[in-house]
């Protein structure tokens, strides 16, 4: 079962959406739309009757509300009043990801089926070292038990992604999306890339997106992916090659065909040739 992201055009690129009870990392520099992404994610869940928790290190409840209202999402106000959406600002100097106060707040708004946002995760891990990887791992483990989480991570201005504060969350996240905006105002200046999506097919390449009033982020490229999907008839290939295929291998090859990734037919033929 998949969790819809609420971002138009993205779910198809993720094979249907995020996997339930996973941690998704949105990596992007300033102004790429990370906060809007997280709001769309929360709004989708709230529309479906789910609860949401918003942890921010930049904005308080008013700031989050103002951002949502600027995009025309007035219903956020109702969700907050109904306490279906809990918003709280934390200050990075006072708390770490191992902090009880932070965990308690998240747990108070979650029921195992909730949507959780941490925007952004960078202040919490800015002085991270590789030795602390297990700690972050534990934190993500806890988040998974509480619901489906999206955390944002600031891409350093230098572009250097080698810092542990970046690499550790990227390694440990289940899904990693990168948003880029090179700022010249042309169509491909804002692009989204799916770097990782554990346990699921995902589209490869960069996909342009726009941020539109009322709608938020809209990602293009679904029709392009559909056109590139290979429709492979496994039974026909097996017949033509005259190979006897064991049942367990056949099931795996069938699953491969269903995914329809580019290069499937070639890969299947290579595998079958090795059986001859």
């Amino acid at each position: 079962m998949r969790v819809e992201t609420g971002v138009f055009g993205l779910d198809s690129l993720l094979g249907g959406g995020l996997r339930k009870n996973t941690v998704t990392v949105i990596l992007g520099s300033t102004g790429t739309g990370k906060t809007i992404f997280t709001l769309q994610f929360l709004m989708k869940g709230l529309e479906k009757g789910e609860n949401g928790v918003y942890v921010s290190f930049d904005m308080d409840e008013k700031g989050v509300l103002d951002t949502a209202l600027s995009l025309g999402w007035e219903e956020v106000k109702d969700y907050i009043e109904e306490e279906r959406l809990k918003v709280r600002r934390f200050f990075a100097e006072n708390v770490s990801y191992l902090n009880n106060e932070l965990m308690s707040f998240i747990m108070s708004g979650s029921d195992g089926n909730s949507r959780i946002v941490i925007d952004s995760f960078t202040p919490l891990v800015s002085s991270l070292s590789y030795e602390m990887r297990n700690d972050v791992n534990w934190f993500f483990y806890k988040l998974r038990s509480l619901g489906t989480t999206v955390i944002t991570l600031e891409e350093p201005l230098s572009g250097n992604l080698d810092e542990p504060s970046v690499t550790i969350p990227l390694f440990l996240g289940d899904t990693v999306l990168q948003l880029k905006n090179i700022g010249y105002g042309e169509a491909f200046n804002r692009t989204l890339r799916i770097i990782k999506h554990r346990g699921s097919w995902h589209a490869e390449g960069v996909f342009p997106y726009r941020i539109l009033d009322g709608v938020g982020i809209v990602v293009e490229g679904v029709d392009y992916i559909e056109v590139r999907r290979e429709k492979v008839d496994i039974d026909s290939i097996i017949r033509k090659m005259g190979v006897k295929v064991p049942e367990d291998l056949y099931k795996k090859l069938k699953k491969m065909c269903d995914a329809g990734m580019a290069g499937t037919e070639e890969a299947i033929k290579t595998i079958l040739r090795s059986l001859k």
Binding site: A187, F188, G205, F207, P208, E220, G221, V222, D223, Y224, V227, R228
Partner: peptide, 9 residues
């Protein structure tokens, strides 16, 4: 038709 599809065409 999306931009990507048009460009690929």
């Amino acid at each position: 038709m999306s931009l990507l599809l048009r460009i690929s065409e």
